[in-house]
Amino acid sequence: MTVNSPEFFLLLSALVFAIGLIGLIIRRNPLVMFMSIELMLNASNLAFMTFSRFTDKTPGLQGGPADGPVFTFVVMTIAAAEAVVGLAIIITIFRNKRTVDVDALAELKG
């Protein structure tokens, strides 16, 4: 498996995704959980770009199909928006509860 092959990038993407997922599950600080989510999003971006880069070239066009980069930009935009809204919520919760421990924020249940 060479460095410049789709398998390498896809495995890397899966590894980063797994790290993000595990971080999301085991951490209790919402800020760190946000970072984990960013990791997962970027892992998926990496996968998009990999598929885009290593797909056969379309005749008459330079480079791979544009779908991958387009999706990547959309994901990055959503990640930015999500971070803004999420941080605002976290700050509001902290103002009300004086804590941001997610285990303590378990009131919404059946």
Binding site: L24, I25, I26, M33, V102, D103, L105, A106, E107, L108, K109, G110
Partner: peptide, 9 residues
């Protein structure tokens, strides 16, 4: 409802 613990994880 037992499954709805409120714990994100």
């Amino acid at each position: 409802t037992e499954t709805q613990t409120g714990q994100v994880r």
